[in-house]
Design a protein around this nucleic acid. Structure first.
Length: 964
RNA sequence: GCCCUCGUAGCCCAAUCGGCAGAGGCAGACCCCUUAAAAGGGUUCGAGUGUCGGUUCGAAUCCGACCGGGGGCACCA
C-alpha cells in the first residue's frame, strides 16, 4: 500500500476541499490507526477481581461492575449486512458510556459455531466444518473490529473450541447427575436420592418403578433404571418429531405449526424413538414465576408465559368397564354438562377399551363406516398419524372421530357417556383425554353437532341466546347441576369449581391440578457438527457418565459428515447418526472404577442450543481449565445486587426470534446450576432488550422480478430502473430481494464512525427501521461539523483556546450533557445524537471560522460523542492535548446551575386554548403566575366581562382560565 | 380466531407526571462559497398526532370501539 493511499486528504488541495477536512478518507486513516493502537495498548481489557485476568484490577476496584453483551452470532458464510451490527453497536455505545461514567465494564463477544449450515456446507464440499466455520469467524471478527467495537478480545471463544465444549459436556453431566425434588422445588444430587431410597425415607417417584416392587428388593439393574428415570437428563422412548428430509429429530420448538421443519421446511412425522430428554417441565413454575422479577419487555415475557402455558383445573376419573379414563379440564364446574368423552387417537387405553362389536342400531356417523370398532379405530389412527402433522394448521376443519363402542360413567350423575377417539384431542397435553361439554365448549359443540350428541347447558344463558348457534362460553350462574349430595346451581364459576372439586376429592374421583403446554426438551440430534455426549453405555445398555477427568469427549474425524437422509415423506425411516459410522470411536475401553471394560459411546450429538445455554458464564474467564466458572467471578459479574434481585447479565441485546427457544433453555440450565450451587445468580439475564430490525426497500419490475435496488432512481414520487417504472416493496435485507447493503460498503464510503452514528440516529434501539443510504450523509455532516469545531480545516490547527464561554453557551453545553446522558442510559441513542447536534450547531453559529472555541466546551463535546464515534473522539481528544484514551476519560456531568433558567415563558390559556405567553421568574408560584397572566393585555381582553369559573396555574408550565 | 405492539410533517423520528405538538436528520425551496460541481456553509417551508367516541380545566399521552402496519399463539380442554 502506498503512502498516498493512506493519507490522501492531508495532501490534496487541488479540488477545493480544505486540506484538513474530516473526509471519508481521513476518517478511514484515523480509524485504522486507533484500532491498531487500542489493540496494542489493550485499551479494552477488562480486569477481573481475581485470577489470571486480574491485572490492573486495582485501577477499577472501586467502580461498580457492568456486564453488557450481545446474543453471539452464528458465523455464516454470507457475512454481515447493515442490519446485523445494530445490536452490537447498541451494546458498544452503552459499554463505552458506562466505562467513561465510572463502571468496570465487561463487554465480550463469542461465536455460536456448531450447527446445521456449516455441516451442510461440509456435506456438499467434503471439507471439515471446522475449516469453514473458523474462516467465517475470522471474517466476522474482522468486520466487528473495523466497526470499532470495544470487545475484550482476550475473552472471545467459539462453542466449537474443545476447551469450551468440555464444559458444555460437564454441565450435561451435572444435569444428568441430578434430579428434581418436588418437595423442595429444586434440583439435588442424584447421590442424595439414592441415599434416601436406600434409607427408606423416600419412595421412587410415580412412574419410575415399572415393576412396582419395593426399592430394597430390586436388583442393581432395576435400581439403576429407577434412578435413571428420576434424572433431569434422561433417556425416553416417546413419539418424537422425526424429519426424514434432514435425517434428524427435532424439538417441538423447531417444528412449525403446519408440521414442517423450521429449517429446510421438510415434513415432520411423529414416531417413537429412544432419545435424551431434559426435564425442563420440572422448572415450569419457577420459569414462569421468575419472569416477574426480570427487566424484560412485557411482550417477551408474555411469549414465554404463553409457551409455558400454565393452566389450572382438575383431573377427573371416569370409570369405563374395569378401566379408568382420567381427563383434564379447566372447567370442572361444567361436569354435569358432560355428554361424551374423547381420547386422543394415540391414547394408551384405546386398544383395551375398544369393544368387540357395534351395538345394534349404532349411529352410522359414529362408526367411520367400519364393520367393527377395532377396524374403525385402526383406520382412524392411521389417518390421524398422517393428517395430524400435515393439516394441523387447518384448525377450523370439520371435526372427525369414531366411537370405541363403549361408555364411561360420569361420576357426578352416573350418566353413561359414549367414548370416542378424535384428533382434536392431543396426546401430549393434559391427560390426552377430555370430558366433552358441548354446551360450553366451542370444539365440543362442533363435534356434538357433527355426531348428533346431546347438549346440556349448565351455565345460565343471557336473554335470547340460541344454543343451536354455538356453545355458550360467557359468564353466568350454574344451572342443571345438582345430584343428591351436591348442587352447584346458582353458583358462579369460581365457587362452582371449588365446590365440585372438593366433592370429587371426597369421592376419590378427581383432584385439582395444574398442567403446562411446555414439554420436556428433546436433546438428541443425529448430526455430526455438535457436542458429543459425555455418555457411554455398559453391558446392560444403561447410560454411564464419562468422568470429568476424561473430558472433553472430542468429536472424532469422519469421512462423511451427513446423517443418512431419506425421501422427505418416508415416515417409516429411522435416524442413523454420522458418529455411528466412526467405528473405532463408538466402542471404547475404559476403567470407570471396576476395571477396564468395553463401553459403547452415545452417537447422537447435542442440539445447537446447548452451546448458547451458558456462554455468558464462560466470558468471565474462558481460559479456566479447572472450573466452568470461578464462583468468585460469577458473584462479582453476575451476582444478585440485593434482596430479591435475580442477578444476571446487566444488559443482554438480541433478536426477538430467540424469545422462547434460547432464552428458555438458558434460564433452565442456569436454574439447575444455581440449585447445585455453581452460580449465585438465579437468572442469566437480568435485563434484556430486543433490538429492532433494519429492513430496506426492494423493487420489482412489471414481470414481478426483483431489480437491483441500488440502481433504482426516484423521480416525482415514482421509481424507475433503467428508465422503466418499478414497484416499491419493503422487506428483509438480503440477496433474494436484491437490496443488500453491507457495513463494508458504508464504511468504505463514509468510515465506521459515520456508519455508527447513522445506525444509532435512526431511532431507539428496540425500534425497527428502514435503511436509507441517502440519509447517511447527514451523520457524515454532523461529524464534519464537530471536527470543524476543534480543528481548523485549512491549517489543521486546534481551534480550542482557554477563553470564557458565554453564559448562553454554558447553558447549551449543560443541556446537551443532560440530554445525552439520558439518551445513552435509556438506549435512545437518537436523542443523544440530537442533543449533540444542537450543541454543535450552537457552537458553529456562535464561534465562526475565525473565532477560537472555548476549550471548556470543546472538550466535553468530544467526550459526549465518544461512545458513538470513538475514533473521531480519540483523534480530537489527542489533538486537544491528552496523552490518554478518551475511552477512559470521565463522562461530562451536567451542572444544575446551568440547567435551570432564571425566568421561564409560560403559556396562558383561556378555555384550554393558548392565547398569550408571559415571562415570569422560574420559581414563581401559582398566585404569581395568575397575577402575571391577568396583567397581560391580550388575556385581560379575553377575561373582560366573563365569569371566571376556575383558574388552573401549574408553576413553570402554564395558566388556564376556565370561563363560565 | 385470540393476545401483544406501533400509527405524529413527503420520509425516519422527538415531545418527562396528561400542561404551548417539534429536538435532530433526510428530501424540497432559496441564498452563500465555487470557473463549475458537491458528500461544504446558511436560511426556509412543512403535520394538529390513523378514525370515532369518552374522562379531564386541559389528551399525541388515560379509557372504549374501529381501521391499518409489525409480531406471537393457534383444536392446549
Amino acid at each position: 500500500m502506498s503512502q498516498t493511499d493512506r493519507q490522501p486528504a492531508a495532501t490534496t488541495t487541488g479540488d477545493g476541499v480544505p486540506a484538513h477536512r474530516y473526509t471519508p478518507s481521513l476518517a478511514q486513516q484515523i480509524e485504522l490507526d486507533w484500532q491498531d493502537r487500542w489493540e496494542a495498548e489493550g485499551t479494552f481489557h477488562t480486569p477481573n477481581p481475581t485470577g489470571r485476568l486480574s491485572a490492573g484490577f486495582d485501577r477499577v476496584a472501586d467502580r461498580p461492575k457492568y456486564f453488557a453483551m450481545d446474543m453471539f452470532p452464528y458465523p455464516s458464510g454470507a457475512g454481515l449486512h447493515v442490519g446485523h451490527p445494530l445490536g452490537y453497536l447498541g451494546t458498544d455505545v452503552t459499554s463505552r458510556f458506562r466505562r467513561m461514567d465510572g463502571d468496570n465494564v465487561l463487554h465480550p463477544m463469542g461465536y455460536d459455531a456448531f450447527g446445521l449450515p456449516a455441516e451442510q456446507y461440509a456435506v456438499q464440499t467434503g471439507q471439515h466444518p471446522r475449516i469453514t466455520t473458523e474462516a467465517n469467524i475470522a471474517a466476522i471478527r474482522a468486520q466487528l473490529r473495523r466497526l470499532g467495537v470495544d470487545h475484550d478480545d482476550r475473552r472471545s471463544f467459539a462453542t466449537i473450541d474443545p476447551g469450551y465444549y468440555k464444559w458444555t459436556q460437564w454441565i450435561f453431566l451435572q444435569i444428568f447427575g441430578s434430579w428434581f425434588d418436588e418437595t423442595v422445588g429444586k434440583a439435588r444430587r442424584i447421590d442424595e436420592l439414592i441415599g434416601e431410597l436406600d434409607a427408606g425415607t423416600r419412595q421412587p417417584a410415580a412412574g419410575t418403578n415399572p415393576s412396582g416392587r419395593p426399592w430394597a428388593e430390586l436388583d442393581e439393574v432395576e435400581q439403576r433404571t429407577v434412578v435413571d428415570a428420576h434424572r433431569l437428563a434422561y433417556l425416553h422412548e416417546a413419539p418424537v418429531n422425526w424429519c426424514p428430509g434432514l435425517g434428524t429429530v427435532l424439538s417441538n420448538e423447531e417444528v412449525t405449526a403446519d408440521g414442517r421443519s423450521e429449517r429446510g421446511n421438510f415434513p415432520v412425522f411423529r414416531r417413537p424413538l429412544k432419545q435424551w430428554m431434559m426435564r425442563i417441565t420440572a422448572y415450569a413454575d419457577r420459569l414462569l414465576a421468575d419472569l416477574d422479577r426480570l427487566d424484560w419487555s412485557e411482550s417477551l415475557k408474555l411469549m414465554q408465559r404463553n409457551w409455558i402455558g400454565r393452566s389450572t383445573g382438575a383431573k377427573i376419573r371416569f370409570a369405563a368397564d374395569e378401566h379408568t379414563i382420567e381427563v383434564f379440564t379447566t372447567r370442572p364446574d361444567t361436569l354435569f354438562g358432560a355428554t361424551y368423552v374423547v381420547l386422543a387417537p394415540e391414547h394408551p387405553l384405546v386398544d383395551s377399551l375398544t369393544a368387540a362389536a357395534w351395538p345394534e342400531g349404532t349411529d352410522p356417523r359414529w362408526t367411520g363406516r367400519a364393520a367393527t370398532p377395532a377396524e374403525a379405530v385402526r383406520e382412524y389412527q392411521r389417518q390421524a398419524s398422517r393428517r395430524s402433522e400435515l393439516d394441523r394448521q387447518d384448525a377450523g376443519r370439520d371435526k372427525t372421530g369414531v366411537w370405541l363402542g363403549v361408555t364411561a360413567v360420569n361420576p357426578v350423575n352416573g350418566r353413561e357417556l359414549p367414548v370416542f377417539i378424535a384428533d382434536y384431542v392431543l396426546t401430549g397435553y393434559g391427560t390426552g383425554a377430555i370430558m366433552a361439554v358441548p354446551g360450553e365448549d366451542t370444539r365440543d359443540w362442533e363435534f356434538a353437532r357433527a355426531f348428533g350428541l346431546e347438549i346440556v347447558p349448565t351455565v345460565q344463558r343471557p336473554e335470547g341466546f340460541d344454543d343451536d348457534g354455538g356453545a355458550y362460553t360467557g359468564p353466568g350462574a350454574m344451572i342443571n347441576s345438582a345430584n343428591d349430595e351436591i348442587s352447584l346451581d346458582g353458583l358462579d364459576k369460581a365457587a362452582a369449581i371449588e365446590r365440585v372439586t372438593e366433592w370429587l376429592v371426597g369421592k376419590g374421583a378427581g383432584e385439582a391440578t395444574t398442567t403446562y403446554k411446555l414439554r420436556d426438551w428433546l436433546f438428541s440430534r443425529q448430526r455430526y457438527w455438535g457436542e458429543p455426549f459425555p455418555i457411554v453405555y455398559d453391558e446392560n445398555d444403561l447410560p454411564v457418565a464419562v468422568p470429568q477427568s476424561m473430558l472433553p469427549v472430542l468429536l472424532p474425524e469422519v469421512d462423511d459428515y451427513s446423517p443418512k437422509t431419506f425421501s422427505d415423506d418416508d415416515a417409516d425411516s429411522a435416524p442413523e447418526p454420522p458418529l455411528s459410522r466412526a467405528s473405532e470411536w463408538t466402542t471404547v475401553e475404559l476403567d470407570l472404577g471396576d476395571g477396564p471394560k468395553k463401553y459403547r459411546r452415545e452417537t447422537n450429538t447435542m442440539p445447537n442450543w446447548a452451546g448458547s445455554c451458558w456462554y455468558y458464564l464462560r466470558y468471565l474467564d474462558p481460559g479456566d481449565d479447572e472450573r466452568m466458572v470461578d464462583p468468585e467471578l460469577e458473584r462479582y459479574w453476575m451476582g444478585p445486587r440485593g434482596e430479591g434481585d435475580t442477578g444476571g447479565v446487566d444488559l443482554y441485546v438480541g433478536g426477538v426470534e430467540h424469545a422462547v427457544l434460547h432464552l428458555l433453555y438458558a434460564r433452565f440450565w442456569h436454574k439447575v446450576l444455581h440449585d447445585l450451587g455453581y452460580v449465585s445468580s438465579e437468572e442469566p439475564f437480568r435485563r434484556l432488550v430486543n433490538q429492532g430490525y433494519i429492513s430496506a426497500y426492494a423493487y420489482t419490475d412489471e414481470r414481478g422480478f426483483y431489480v437491483q435496488a441500488s440502481e433504482v432512481v426516484e423521480k416525482d414520487g415514482q421509481f424507475f430502473h433503467e428508465g422503466k417504472p418499478v414497484n416499491r416493496e419493503y422487506g428483509k435485507i438480503g440477496k433474494s430481494l436484491k437490496n443488500m447493503v453491507t457495513p463494508d460498503e458504508m464504511i468504505g464510503a463514509y468510515g465506521a464512525d459515520t456508519f455508527r452514528v447513522y445506525e444509532m440516529s435512526t431511532g431507539p434501539l428496540e425500534q425497527s427501521r428502514p435503511w436509507d443510504t441517502k440519509a447517511v450523509v447527514g451523520s457524515q455532516r454532523l461529524l464534519q461539523r464537530i471536527w470543524r469545531v476543534v480543528v481548523d480545516e485549512e491549517t489543521g490547527a486546534v481551534r480550542a483556546a482557554d477563553i470564557e464561554p458565554a453564559e448562553e453557551t454554558l447553558r447549551a453545553l449543560h443541556k446537551a450533557i443532560d440530554g445525552v446522558r439520558d439518551g445513552y442510559a435509556t438506549l435512545r441513542f437518537n436523542i443523544a445524537i440530537a442533543r449533540i447536534t444542537e450543541l454543535t450547531n450552537h457552537l458553529t453559529s456562535v464561534y465562526g471560522a475565525d473565532t477560537p472555541v472555548p476549550r471548556m466546551v470543546a472538550e466535553p463535546l468530544v467526550l459526549l460523542v465518544a461512545p458513538l464515534a470513538p475514533h473521531l473522539a480519540e483523534e480530537l481528544w489527542s489533538r486537544l492535548g491528552s496523552e490518554t484514551s478518551s475511552a477512559w476519560a470521565p463522562f461530562p456531568v451536567a451542572d444544575e446551575r446551568w440547567l435551570t433558567e432564571d425566568t421561564v415563558q409560560v403559556a396562558v390559556q383561556v378555555n384550554g386554548k393558548v392565547r398569550a405567553q408571559v415571562t415570569v421568574p422560574a420559581d414563581a408560584d401559582a398566585a404569581a403566575l395568575e397575577a402575571a397572566a391577568r396583567a397581560d393585555e391580550k388575556i385581560a381582553g379575553h377575561l373582560a366581562g366573563a365569569t371566571i369559573r376556575r383558574v388552573v396555574a401549574v408553576p413553570g408550565r402554564l395558566v388556564n382560565f376556565v370561563l363560565g
